[in-house]
Design a protein around this nucleic acid. Structure first.
Length: 283
DNA sequence: CAAGAATCCTGTCAGC
DNA sequence: TGCTGACAGGATTCTT
């Protein structure tokens, strides 16, 4: 579920429910996520006012007001592979499996972090030093920023002997793409996933940049369209999965092949991850 | 140094 | 109906 568009959607949902609120209560049920939770997490959350949110790559940052006169603290959240936020009104108290953290707001809402595989993580960082956190410090450009353009991508790919697919998954090259959106953007750019990063031309890089941005924006729009449903316990986010053109479509015909019927979407494994692509269209 | 494999953990689904 | 193995939206750490 959680690549950049999903994280953006989750962040907006949290923003709508939490911004300006005070956390009345915080409960940690399991501290052993991807990394051990800060020992003082409950104490730091309890009584804190939520000032606002920001997303960086696939991380959500929740800024808390200072309690002490010192600088404020930010909560750094990553959803991992299976993490989601569950938002419901107080009173619907049925226990939720794998809900490792639960917050209660001063206006009676419960916000839970649910993550069966526990690849997610939560840490605290001084707000003034958010980007210096070890998990954020090495990240590449935000794909939706104007600063992410063909020149930047080209320079980043230069000399790399790894397939373009793997390079785009590398968060130091561009931050926030995951397996689905890399597959989709490469299909829309008609670039073969096995092509070496160093061999991607300036024109192809320009196409990639433009298709990455378009794909992400469309996905965010689709997630946003179902934002009100985001509180549902099934946790389903958005409708973009219905717009996947190659991901998860092995054997189906792609919608771009001209002339004779498409030979069918292929699946190969690259550095341990499935890649879906059209072998005729993508060169 | 760079590239690929192994790893963390649980759930689901296909096949027998 | 179990059981088994493959696989899953991530990213660090370990090997080559």
């Amino acid at each position: 579920m959680p690549e950049l568009p999903e994280v953006e959607t989750v962040m907006r949902g949290l923003q709508a429910r939490l911004e300006g609120r005070v956390i009345r209560r915080a409960v940690v049920r399991r501290p052993d996520l991807r990394w051990p939770l800060p020992l003082d997490l409950e104490a730091r959350l309890t009584g804190a006012q939520v000032l606002g949110f920001r997303r960086r790559a696939k991380y959500i940052l929740m800024r808390l007001a200072s309690l002490s006169g010192e600088g404020g603290t930010s909560v750094l959240l990553h959803l991992g592979m299976s993490g989601r936020m569950l938002i419901r009104q107080r009173g619907s108290n049925a226990a939720v499996l794998h809900e490792h953290i639960e917050l209660e707001t001063d206006d009676g809402w419960l916000v839970g972090f649910v993550d069966p595989r526990r690849f997610g993580s939560i840490d605290l960082v001084p707000t003034a030093m958010e980007d210096a956190h070890r998990l954020l410090a090495g990240l590449g450009p935000e794909p939706l920023d104007d600063a992410f353009d063909a020149g930047v991508l080209c320079r980043s790919l230069a000399g790399r002997r790894t397939p373009i697919k793997a390079a785009l998954l590398d968060q130091r090259v561009v931050a926030g793409l995951g397996n689905i959106y890399v597959c989709e953007a490469m299909f829309r750019s008609a670039i073969a996933p096995g092509r070496l990063a160093a061999d991607v031309t300036e024109a192809q890089a320009a196409r990639l940049v433009s298709e990455i941005k378009a794909t992400l924006l469309e996905a965010i729009a689709a997630g946003g369209s179902s934002l009100r449903d985001y509180v549902q316990p099934d946790g389903e986010l958005g409708y973009f999965q219905h717009a996947w053109r190659v991901y998860g479509r092995e054997g189906e015909r792609c919608d771009q092949c001209p002339g004779p019927p498409c030979p069918g979407v292929a699946r190969v494994v690259q550095s341990g991850r499935s890649t879906f692509y059209c072998p005729r269209l993508q060169a």
